[in-house]
């Protein structure tokens, strides 16, 4: 196995295509390999290397007498997964056995952590969000002023503070949904925003939300649904095809919100107390998911008022008491 040889995807079997029968013949395996190689190319991998990875992946599936989609899951998701793993190793070489993985062997054409599909390489730990002297006033009332915050790739930042101190407003400023009254904001282009509540259409199903948000991001409907169902699986949720969002429990609706925020693979995730209504197991899965995003080189900003959340984060910004 070469240093960046494909490894079976832990999510593969649970993926939406995971139910495909074993060894579907050359046709399905070849189609999967083509889609896999196409996605690698889209992610910035050079063509010879993409072909080689595709061949190795299908070969590995053949050795297991299993169809690639049954072993690795949907091709495009596994391509992203593989790139993420390679980038994680590049960010944190000690995370992998150095004898089994040599970061210098990586092709420089492979985007660094969190690089967008445009393929622009970004150094690990680059700044994803920088607030300098940001303030917000509503008429004569100052909500907050002089907020400085820098969040880098592979970091989780928490925004804490009393009710009404402007945590959600600050997050909306980061997302560019609200304009700051003062200060400057610099942030990466691809951002995912998960509101505290709302943000979904009650008369649509989860699948239709995936289609809608996928279309907004330029993703084909079938692929958006497949990605959405896969991401939902990570939160221990299997969306029902005919259940309307308004009939989902509050916690499940928040899971949908989380999936929608992540659907287009943003480099920066802005989460406004997204765990409301989560049961204990989902709450733990949620934090595991945040740590997985962090390890994959994404920057995460989470608004919270739960002090025990803070053990998971790299930095805490306290907006203080109510202004």
């Amino acid at each position: 196995m070469t240093p960046d040889s494909p490894r079976p995807n832990p999510h593969g079997g649970a993926g939406p295509s995971g139910g495909a029968g074993p060894s579907g013949g050359a046709g399905p395996a070849s189609g999967w390999a083509d889609r896999f190689a196409d996605e690698l190319l889209r992610l910035g991998v050079q063509p010879p290397r993409a072909r080689r990875l595709a061949e190795e992946t299908t070969q590995q599936a053949a050795e297991c007498a299993t169809a690639p989609d049954a072993l690795f899951g949907p091709a495009h998701l596994y391509a992203r997964h593989l790139i993420t793993e390679l980038n994680t190793a590049a960010l944190n070489p000690t995370a992998l056995n150095p004898t089994a993985f040599n970061p210098t062997a990586l092709n420089p054409a492979v985007p660094k952590a969190g690089a967008g599909p445009s393929g622009g390489a970004i150094d690990p730990g680059d700044v994803r969000l920088r607030l300098t002297g940001v303030g917000k006033r509503y008429r004569r009332r100052t909500i907050f002023a002089g907020v400085n915050l820098t969040v880098r790739a592979g970091e989780v930042a928490a925004i804490v503070g009393a009710n009404g101190c402007g945590k959600s407003t600050l997050l909306r400023i980061c997302a560019s949904l609200t304009r700051p009254s003062s200060g400057t904001v610099q942030r990466t282009r691809r951002v995912g925003f998960v509101p505290q509540d709302g943000g979904t259409a009650g008369w649509l199903t989860a699948d239709e939300h995936f289609t809608l948000f996928g279309a907004a991001a330029g993703v084909a409907p079938r692929r958006a649904r497949s990605t959405g169902e896969h991401l939902a699986g990570r939160l221990a949720w299997r969306p029902s095809r005919d259940q309307l969002t308004q009939h989902l429990s509050g916690g499940t609706r928040q899971k949908l919100n989380l999936v929608l925020g992540e659907l287009h693979s943003p480099d920066l995730l802005l989460l406004d107390e997204p765990y409301q209504g989560f049961d204990q197991g989902t709450y733990l899965s949620f934090w595991q998911q945040i740590l997985a995003w962090r390890d994959a080189g994404k920057a995460v900003v989470v608004v919270t008022h739960l002090l025990h959340d803070l053990q998971h984060v790299n930095q805490v910004h306290d907006l203080g008491a109510t202004a």
Partner: peptide, 19 residues
Amino acid sequence: NAARGVDPRLRLTGASTLA
């Protein structure tokens, strides 16, 4: 009016106002 909560997120995800 019912789509008021979804529209900003769609814009943020990449949709144009016209679409």
